[in-house]
Amino acid sequence: MTSLTLPSPRHPWAGLAAWLALSVAVAVIGGIASADAGNFYRQLEQPDWAPPARLFGPVWTVLYAAMAVAAWWVWRSPPGPARSTALVLYVVQLVPNALWSWLFFAWQQGALAMADIALLWLLIVATVLAFWRVKPGAAALLLPYLAWVSFAAALNFWLWRHNPALLG
């Protein structure tokens, strides 16, 4: 992985604001694609274990906040290759995170959304491991995110396989 030179955190609260802003930006990008997600989600045949659509927003809000704090915590660690690698992985995993909503809700591409969430899951695991090397507590903050994406992957797979007309 390429080393990323990041400035030392001279202004830690500004850094936290920046990591939170990045999380908000990713949430907004996904949110734009999910503007009509509730209506589409209700049209899908659902498994008994599917959560109600109203649960997703609050869960993602908490997860994005925890993710930003975890990244900030790693960013505040002493500079070095491990920190750079961890933060690059973190930023990279945000791309499939934001893309998933577009694939699933806006473009209704179940197979591509499944491939995207599988890639996202692998990138989150890599990020957790990289964060662990720098700051184990930051890695722990990402575990609920990993658990939620694991659940979302299972739900994505079920919905895709049981709704071929809508997620073809």
Score class of each variant (00 low, 15 high):
residue 95 V to Q: 10
residue 35 A to I: 03
residue 40 F to H: 11
residue 103 L to N: 05
residue 50 A to R: 11
residue 74 V to Y: 01
residue 26 V to T: 05
residue 76 R to E: 06
residue 140 A to D: 01
residue 3 S to E: 11
residue 25 A to S: 04
residue 166 L to P: 06
residue 40 F to W: 03
residue 63 L to C: 13
residue 73 W to M: 07
residue 79 P to T: 06
residue 28 V to Y: 13
residue 80 G to L: 07
residue 63 L to N: 01
residue 148 W to T: 12
residue 155 L to V: 02
residue 31 G to I: 07
residue 30 G to L: 05
residue 16 L to H: 08
residue 146 L to H: 13
residue 3 S to T: 07
residue 17 A to P: 11
residue 5 T to N: 10
residue 118 A to C: 08
residue 16 L to Q: 04
residue 161 R to W: 02
residue 147 A to S: 08
residue 150 S to Y: 12
residue 99 L to V: 15
residue 85 T to H: 03
residue 34 S to N: 15
residue 82 A to M: 11
residue 85 T to A: 12
residue 35 A to K: 11
residue 62 V to G: 11
residue 116 D to I: 08
residue 74 V to E: 00
residue 108 Q to T: 15
residue 139 A to L: 03
residue 78 P to I: 01
residue 163 N to S: 12
residue 39 N to H: 14
residue 153 A to N: 06
residue 119 L to I: 11
residue 22 L to W: 02
residue 156 N to T: 14
residue 34 S to V: 12
residue 133 R to H: 09
residue 42 R to L: 13
residue 80 G to T: 05
residue 76 R to S: 07
residue 94 L to H: 04
residue 76 R to I: 01
residue 59 V to M: 13
residue 115 A to I: 08
residue 54 R to M: 09
residue 99 L to P: 09
residue 150 S to Q: 14
residue 133 R to T: 00
residue 55 L to S: 14
residue 29 I to R: 09
residue 1 M to Q: 07
residue 153 A to G: 15
residue 108 Q to D: 11
residue 29 I to H: 06
residue 26 V to L: 14
residue 8 S to M: 09
